[in-house]
Design a protein around this nucleic acid. Structure first.
Length: 778
DNA sequence: TTAGGCGCTGTTTTT
DNA sequence: CAGCGCCTAA
């Protein structure tokens, strides 16, 4: 191995990176230089004369692929690095499917449905079948279908699977198999694949077309898989098939960081690896270079509570470091203020940059309190995950036009834009077409040509034909214009740009700007592709494939990158920050209440916590709130069990009871105006009062009297607080904002969910939840 | 047909 | 507190 490369690795890393032929597995503890080893091994392969075209490197996220490519580029040059097949499972196999699609009767320009499209299709099918969508919840149904695909269970297999059928019968969803079959058929008729299909169909391709299998088996002489613990069965099998000839399969992972079991990832794959390649070489990376001793050892103490794990001892030579701080806050807003203050102070004290800080939470919904708190101190931040750029309505709308142009059978795209901007094609007309198409098992686009059969005529027919003509006019340019030029053309000629321009509200302007940004992205894309391959133009469908698989916020460069990062713990995997705040450390939040049922699920939560802690280089801070608003309602919380699970010696617990700042409802700082897009850089803002001492704790059901008080009836000027729960008793006369005077007949349920049956002379008998009804006792 | 209002319901995590 | 779906009024 190249001497210079060699010198930059430790012994264990070097051994793994220098490995040439034969299967190998690297078990790499957090922060042990896993990516480094992968990059160096690839660099070593290339320097040893292996053609980059013969190397396949699979990662889990776009981010990881990009980073790896850059690192390899630095080691062996960008030219070589570019030729390596490196990317996510989904993007690599989308690329291969596109080459081979005619074998499985898919159009070359097949579209990729994102989760929203897929769920929408499921929903339509459930509706068309006349099923109750309260029993067949589209999201749940979709998840089940998804997990089938990840386990390579086709609709036909499903019908034959007694266990699945029995399970469905038991849960009262006997039509599940039928929905799955219909869903699959509809995707096919639409020339579309969902995310899972990219793996499923690849397996079909490799199974049914030996010549294809052979070609790729020989092409990919070396296969490397990152984050192997997160692969599912479909991915496992692809790797196994492709690697079967050369057996130069290298997998890298950490069982302690397996956090995607919920989506079909299977630790079993690691065991299968031993079985499939009995002669494999095993390397363990146990030295952590990222974190302090405190963090490494605390993390070890956490993960040791798990039963399922591969033995390893992660250690570090780094300094001892500061203890893990635990903070108790009174409310979720206080937690936000604490974190934001700490960031402010730490930045001063340690001379750190904003980008050295991360706020990690279990669910995306938790970000709000932190956004507000950071804004108060003018701290710049960036939220990762959540609604991505490509999921915004205006972007999806324009993309739908693109999709329809490339693939007119794309049902979801068609439904999205056939009447947007409004062109007088209403629900009735569309329904006729959808039903007709479903009956004939053809696409809606094909159904349009036979509109008369389902009674679409007159004005409606004319409008539709105009629409068809427009799309066809776009199609003419598919091979003449590049993605950018055609994209621009479509944006203006579809009427979308004009429609958005008409809206002069700040939100409307933002939407218009987003479209411009998308077009800018297309320009960049087109220029780049044409630079790489000067003989052909960058087509619109190339762009669509790229975009469909680009989910996480990859467009980081908006000039100023010194920002605090906020993201879910899942999103933080693979990243590191000097200072990490893990927030919302509460029972039922983290660990999630959905994980309380089984040991396996709890262990996954614990691994998630392990991932969170090990993101920190210098210091980790845990915080929790005693009460927080959850789905619009105050609820009380207990500290997470995970706090106790950390060996005490590494902790700095709160000494005094948390200082109580203003509870929600009378917090004057909430009077701030302005709206949040939840995305853009924070705007400079006048300093709001930091902390308002709270005179008295209001009752839990305290609600500020809104400015939009009822305009008639008694109580107009009555600003007295609403009645507390114990004042409401059967027989008591009460006053309601809308229904007026009434008499309590009975009560049921327990606080805070007490429901009262009240008779109102003006409105009749009503059942009201006390926590919502602002009742006043007369 | 469309827009706007009201009431219901729901919160993991992501390619 | 949202976001969504359904309903109603124009």
């Amino acid at each position: 191995m190249n001497q210079q490369l060699l010198s930059q690795l430790n012994e264990a890393q070097r051994a793994a990176a220098a490995h040439m032929n034969g299967a190998m597995m690297v078990i790499a503890g957090a922060g042990s230089g896993k990516t480094r080893v992968l990059a160096y091994r690839i660099a070593n392969l290339v320097q040893s004369g292996i053609d980059p075209f013969n190397i396949l490197a699979l990662t889990f996220t776009n981010k990881a692929a990009k980073e790896m490519k850059e690192r390899i580029g630095k080691l062996v040059g960008d030219q070589e690095a570019r030729n390596i097949w490196m990317g996510t499972f989904h993007s690599i196999f989308a690329r291969i499917l596109r080459i081979e699609c005619d074998r499985i009767n898919y159009p070359r320009d097949f579209t990729i449905y994102d989760t929203t499209d897929a769920k929408s299709l499921v929903k339509d099918i459930i509706k068309e079948m006349g099923l109750d969508d309260k029993i067949y919840k589209p999201g749940t149904v979709y998840n089940r279908i998804s997990s089938c695909k990840n386990n390579l269970i086709s609709p036909q297999d499903y019908l034959k699977d007694v266990d699945l059928i029995a399970d469905d019968r038991q849960t009262g969803k006997p039509k599940m198999a039928e929905i799955y079959a219909k869903y699959d058929m509809r995707l096919f008729k639409s020339g579309a694949m969902d995310f899972d299909d990219l793996l499923f169909k690849t397996n079909v391709l490799l199974r049914d077309f030996p010549e294809v299998l052979h070609r790729y088996q020989h092409k990919f002489q070396f296969i490397l898989v990152d984050e192997y613990q997160d692969t599912n069965f479909a991915q496992y099998l692809i790797v196994k098939q492709l690697g079967a000839v050369h057996e130069n399969v290298c997998v890298v992972g950490d069982d302690a960081q397996s956090i995607y079991a919920f989506r079909g990832a299977n630790i079993q794959n690691i065991l299968n690896f031993r079985r499939d390649y009995p002669e494999f070489a095993m390397y363990k990376l146990e030295q952590n270079y990222r974190s302090t001793k405190v963090i490494v050892e605390a993390a070890n103490s956490i993960i040791s509570k798990n039963k399922d794990q591969i033995k390893k001892q992660v250690w570090t030579d780094n300094e001892q470091g500061q203890p893990i701080r635990v903070h108790k806050a009174a409310t979720d807003n206080d937690e936000g203020n604490f974190v934001s203050n700490q960031i402010f102070i730490t930045k001063q004290e340690k001379g750190a940059a904003f980008k050295d800080f991360a706020i990690l939470y279990r669910t995306n919904a938790q970000s709000r309190a932190f956004e507000e708190a950071l804004r108060k101190l003018n701290i710049p931040y960036r939220i990762y995950g959540g609604l991505s750029f490509y999921q915004r309505k205006e972007i999806k709308d324009l993309l739908a036009y693109f999709r329809l142009t490339c693939n007119p059978n794309d049902e979801e795209a068609l439904k999205r834009v056939i009447n947007y901007p409004t062109r007088g094609i209403g629900k009735t007309t569309l329904d006729k077409l959808v039903v007709g198409a479903a009956e004939r098992e053809i696409s809606i686009w094909d159904m349009i040509a036979r509109s008369q059969e389902v009674g679409v005529s007159g004005a409606a027919l004319n409008k539709i034909m105009e629409f068809v003509t427009m799309i066809k006019s776009f199609q003419v340019d598919l091979n003449l214009k590049n993605a950018y030029d055609l994209g621009h053309h479509i944006a203006s000629h579809s009427g979308l740009l004009k429609d958005l321009y008409a809206d002069r509200t700040p939100e409307g302007v933002a939407r218009y700007d987003n479209i411009q940004e998308l077009l800018n992205g297309m320009k960049e894309f087109s220029d780049r592709k044409e630079l790489e391959n000067s003989e052909s133009i960058a087509s619109l469908s190339d762009f669509l494939i790229d975009v469909a698989l680009l989910t996480d916020a990859d467009n980081v460069d908006d000039g100023d990158n010194d920002k605090v990062s906020m993201m879910t713990i899942h999103g933080a995997k693979g990243l590191e920050f000097p200072y990490v705040n893990i927030v919302g450390m509460e029972e039922n939040l983290f660990p999630s209440q959905l994980s309380l049922n089984s040991r396996e699920e709890m262990e996954e939560e614990r691994r998630l916590f392990y991932v969170a802690i090990t993101r920190a280089e210098k210091r980790a801070t845990l915080s929790y709130a005693l009460s927080r608003y959850r789905w619009g309602q105050l609820s009380y919380c207990e500290p997470s069990r995970f706090i106790e699970e950390i060996d005490e010696q590494y902790l700095e617990m709160p000494s005094a009871p948390a200082a109580r700042t203003a509870p929600r409802g009378i917090d004057f700082s909430k009077e701030r105006s302005g709206f949040s897009t939840g995305y853009s850089a924070p705007k400079p803002r006048a300093h709001a009062p930091q902390e308002t001492p709270a005179p008295v704790s209001p009752p839990p059901n305290f609600k500020k009297v809104s400015a939009a008080a009822p305009t008639s009836g008694p109580g107009l000027f009555d600003n007295s607080p609403p009645a507390t729960a114990d004042q409401i008793q059967p027989g008591v006369e009460v006053m309601h904002d809308k229904f007026g005077k009434g008499k309590v007949l009975s009560l049921e349920g327990e606080a805070p969910d007490i429901k009262a049956t009240i008779f109102f002379p003006s409105a009749g008998q009503k059942q009201l939840l006390l926590k919502f009804a602002k009742l006043k006792v007369l």
